Simulated assay, not measured.
Amino acid sequence: MKNIYYFIVLCTLMVSFACSKEEKLEPTEMRYDYFTISPDATDEESILRRTFYETNKIHLLFNDTLRHEQRGTYADGTPYWFTELLDLSYNITGTTDGARFTYIQDIRHKEEAVHFVETYILPHLGEGLRPYSIFLVEKMESYSYGWSETNFYNGRRCLALSTQGISDMDEEEIKEQCIDIFYSIIAGKTKYYDEELTEFIAFGAPYYGEYFSSFQSLTKPKPTAEEMYTLGFISWSSWSSYFPYESSDLTAFLKAVFYEDEDTFKTQYAEYPVILQKYDIMKEVVKKKGYIF
């Protein structure tokens, strides 16, 4: 037992001695942020991007190439280049579908695109929802079982926005297009297990995923719309034999908050207090996430 004690003491002394001899640590050179504009850049695009960041604290991009540097040469003297791309589909937890795009070519259209973002997008995004960077392009496509045009791509470190046709839209058309963007951002940050949704989930907890047949008080073989509304459900499958799950219920009300007029919705479901309560809870959750109505 004494031998073990002496061994522990010896190890402690050795560690203490090593720490006392350790050289003072110095920070290494900080990695340059390739989203940031060089202070020496004076071209119109650089000034536009720098001003946007100073105003909104969000990096602005018109090109997906973050850096293109010569790192050396091959044996035959050919330069070796290193290129870092934005990589919209980057995801720390796995892989996602990709996106492809065409750049905005002239400065006037770039200025119009910035005006669109600052007028219709950013005023609705509180601090918790604002992206690290915004990538403005002319046209964009996303891949999901094939390529198709899209108005936006919400990546992990960047929100990419297509500006094609914006100048020809009236204000109402632009607002309608923006709703899809806002819904996507909020939906990505809202899960049924969030603490803010505890009260919302409590209304449906006895029914989520349960078979209709498990409840003797309901009409057989399926409950009527009146019964479903009374229980607080606004969306379910006509062919299903069981109640929706938490995630489906959440999605239905989240879409109602974004895509339906509040007065019209509350008039439609005026006789169903549970639905009205769930709607109000969901709207408050959206506000807490940082969305500004």
Rank of each mutant, 00 (worst) to 15 (best):
T251W: 02
R157W: 12
L25P: 08
I234W: 00
D170W: 03
H59Y: 15
L161T: 03
E22T: 13
V117E: 00
P273S: 04
M1A: 06
Y143S: 09
D194E: 11
S142T: 11
G94N: 11
I104E: 04
P131N: 05
E127F: 01
I166V: 13
I201C: 14
F265H: 03
E45A: 05
H115C: 04
E111R: 14
P79E: 01
S142M: 06
E226M: 09
Y279L: 09
Y183P: 01
P123D: 08
T96H: 06
E284S: 15
E127C: 00
N3C: 06
L66V: 02
Y208F: 15
L60F: 05
Q105F: 03
R49N: 02
L129S: 13
M282N: 07
G165E: 15
Y90W: 12
Y80H: 09
Y208T: 14
K287N: 12
I292G: 00
T267Q: 10
V117K: 00
I37K: 10
K283L: 11
T163W: 02
D106S: 11
D280N: 13
E271C: 02
N3V: 08
F35H: 07
G77E: 13
D106F: 00
H115W: 04
S133R: 01
F182P: 02
I134M: 12
L129I: 12
A256S: 12
S237Y: 05
I166W: 08
I37M: 12
C158T: 15
I179T: 14
L61Y: 04
S167V: 07
C11Q: 04
I104C: 05
T219A: 01
T83I: 05
E195G: 04
Y53T: 00
C19Y: 14
K175W: 03
C158Q: 01
L129V: 07
F82M: 06
V274C: 00
T219H: 10
A256L: 09
G165Q: 07
I134P: 06
A160M: 13
L136Y: 10
K191R: 09
I174R: 03
P206L: 04
P221G: 10
H115V: 11
T219P: 08
F52M: 11
F152E: 07
K220Q: 15
A187C: 03
I179R: 10
R156E: 14
I4S: 12
L136W: 04
F258W: 11
F182M: 08
Y103A: 14
S213I: 11
T190P: 03
L159H: 02
F116D: 02
E173K: 11
K175H: 03
G204F: 02
C11R: 00
S162G: 14
L122H: 04
K255A: 13
G290L: 07
E172W: 05
S237Q: 05
S247H: 01
Y90A: 08
H59C: 01
T230Q: 13
I134G: 03
T230R: 13
R108M: 00
E246K: 15
I186V: 15
S46Y: 09
Y259E: 13
W147L: 06
G188K: 07
V114N: 14
C178I: 15
L10M: 12
G290I: 08
T219N: 09
Y145L: 10
K189V: 07
S144H: 10
K21A: 13
D64F: 09
F101R: 06
S213D: 14
A18K: 10
